[in-house]
Amino acid sequence: MKTITLILSVVIYSMIIPGKAIAGDEDKLKLSFSNPEEPGLLIIEMINGNIDIQGYDGKEVLLESLPPKGESHEHKIPEPVLPDTEEGDEEISKEGLKKIKSSSFEINITEEGNKIKIKPGLTNINQNFNIKVPYACSFKISTVTGNISVKNVKGELEMSTVNGKIDLDKITGSSVASSVNGIIKVVFKKVTADAPMAFSTVNGHIDVTLPAITKATLKMKTDRGDIYTDFDIDVEEKKEKSHKEDKPGQTETSWIKWTTADINGGGPEFAFKSLNGDIHIRKGQ
């Protein structure tokens, strides 16, 4: 590790939500990487809330915070406009303005060594994010309840959620994703050669689309689900026998075998594991 890892900026924002959700880029919070020429890493640690990320042609990360699901604007409008407890607001007239959300929320954003870390403060953990990132960007995103959606980026995508859905689309690079109850859906445009990947769920389905020319060794295992693929593969079922002789009447073989298969001659290991979910591996373009 370089000793010159500069903490370039440690910012704690306490901000009011912008007036409209569909505000232009100028209303969004702009975050820059310390070295914008190199692909950065965006770390988001959420508890509740959805995260929607899209790659765009720019160097900065544009962060937009949206009210949580189910709290539509219409519900907010009839709320009486009450003066805030904040001081220094008296001179500013609030007439004709709609208050969209009554409380401010805290969000901690830090940048260190080309890594931006976004972490909502404890006062308000229920928040959705709409984020635009440079195309080349890696991610490390975790939520407990909330969906993660990433589109059109190039990098390493590390995703984990407990109850949410993970939806990765038009991805170039590699991914390591896990969910407990949610679905994992990934569509790769191109995969990094020699990069192993892994996807796991307990109750959700796994649905991964790989480019047709992908070289990989697929390792699949689901206890109570099924495995589907349209790749031409010689399925080699690896029956892992118990170290001792099987007990009579034991049904263990049905739930303790890996299915391994090489596609396009084999390559890095792509592991798919679920307990109750199905595994779909599709051949893309």
Partner: peptide
């Protein structure tokens, strides 16, 4: 820190 890494 990663579930899948622990799994493998």
């Amino acid at each position: 820190p990663n579930v899948n890494v622990r799994l493998m």
